[in-house]
Simulated assay, not measured.
Amino acid sequence: MAKDTLPAIGEAEASGEIAELYDDIRETLNVTAINYVWRHIATIDGGLRWAWDVAKPMFVSGRVESECEHLQAQLSYPKLPALSDTTLSLVGVEDDGRNMIGAILDTYNRGNLLNMVSLSALLAEPEMPPVGNRSRVDLPFTDIALPPIPEVVDLSGEVSEQVLVLNDLGAKPGPNRVVASIYKHIALWPGYLSLSWVQLAEMHSDGSLLKLIEETQQAARLHATFLAADLGPRPDGAVADQVRSTVFEFTDTVIARMIPIGQMLRQSLIKT
């Protein structure tokens, strides 16, 4: 079972340059929380500055969001059973909880697309995008302030176990050192964690979830090649090597995995 073994600098504990970079990342990506990948890169001495200096020009130009909108238009996922107010209430999720869970999922669904494509560009060789008009779909957005993210060690035994079981859904064989922040965040509503497992477990068992993840990863990496020419300066050295290694681990595992999972979970919360 996965364990949360990668260190990270939390938003509340960040200070100095790290706090300033977090503020810049939040403002530039138009999100209300910093994804785990950036919080882990921040533990590399000089890593967050290196990575953000490389990636930021793509965001400032609007190219990342535009490319992610083209990617979003291509993504199509099965619809999970819709969760009624009654179903959610029976597991302890009332209207306020439903709205906050939706805001959490919107934040991560936006951030995961932006991070998957932009960070994959750090590892990609540039290619020219297709000529002509391409379809696009707006990315999710919320300006609701989110509660702090609990860490796995801070959760009760049963809740932490449920988080880690969920984190293994759709995971590739081998070490799985990163626990998706979505699961830690929605662990504030343990009943919803259990519903999420019920919704996703069969897709994991029959292999369809892993197929969706691999298709998403392939599509995102293609769109990343269209951005690679827009990167900022990338000086080589030990910091660059550590950042690239981290980027590969996250984009090869947890970020790609959570794009389809997060979007399917969000769809099931929409009232019909």
Results as ranks from 00 to 15, higher is better:
Q72L: 10
V165C: 03
P173M: 13
S194M: 02
L166T: 02
G170T: 09
A180Q: 13
T86Y: 01
S160M: 06
T107Y: 08
L146E: 07
S135L: 06
V93I: 10
R110Q: 09
E125L: 10
H185D: 14
A180C: 10
L164V: 11
I182Y: 07
V93S: 03
P130G: 04
E94P: 00
M128A: 14
S76P: 00
V178Y: 10
P148S: 12
Y192T: 03
L166V: 07
R98C: 08
K184Q: 07
V153E: 06
G170H: 05
I104P: 02
D106Y: 11
K184H: 05
G170R: 05
H185E: 05
S181Y: 05
I182N: 08
A171L: 08
R177N: 11
N109E: 14
L123P: 01
P173C: 11
V152M: 10
L193V: 00
N115W: 01
L113N: 09
Q74S: 04
V178R: 06
S120H: 03
A121M: 06
I101P: 14
N115R: 04
I182V: 14
L80F: 15
S120W: 01
I144D: 10
L80M: 14
T87E: 12
D106V: 07
H185T: 05
L113Q: 11
V91W: 01
P140F: 12
I182L: 10
S135K: 13
Q162G: 01
L114E: 10
L88E: 02
G170Y: 04
A187G: 05
L169V: 06
A180T: 11
D95R: 13
W197H: 14
V117F: 09
L75F: 06
L188K: 11
D154P: 00
A171N: 09
R136C: 01
S76A: 06
L105Q: 07
L114V: 07
S181V: 01
Y192G: 03
T142D: 14
V179F: 14
I144L: 12
P147Y: 05
S196K: 01
L193H: 01
L114I: 11
A73T: 09
T87A: 08
V91C: 01
L169Q: 06
T87M: 05
L83P: 00
V163A: 02
G157K: 07
A180G: 11
E161G: 14
L146I: 04
S196D: 00
N115A: 15
S84I: 00
R110E: 04
V152A: 13
L123E: 04
N176T: 15
K172I: 08
L83H: 03
G111P: 07
P130C: 04
L75W: 03
D168S: 13
S118Q: 15
W189F: 08
L75H: 04
L88M: 14
V159A: 06
S194P: 00
E151A: 11
L188I: 05
R134I: 11
I186A: 08
L195V: 09
V131Q: 12
F141G: 09
V93T: 03
S181H: 07
G170P: 02
E161I: 03
P173Q: 05
V91L: 00
A124F: 06
R136M: 09
A145M: 13
R98N: 13
E158P: 00
Q162L: 13
A124W: 03
A121G: 04
S194H: 03
A187M: 02
A171S: 15
G157V: 04
Y183Q: 08
N112A: 09
V179L: 11
L195E: 01
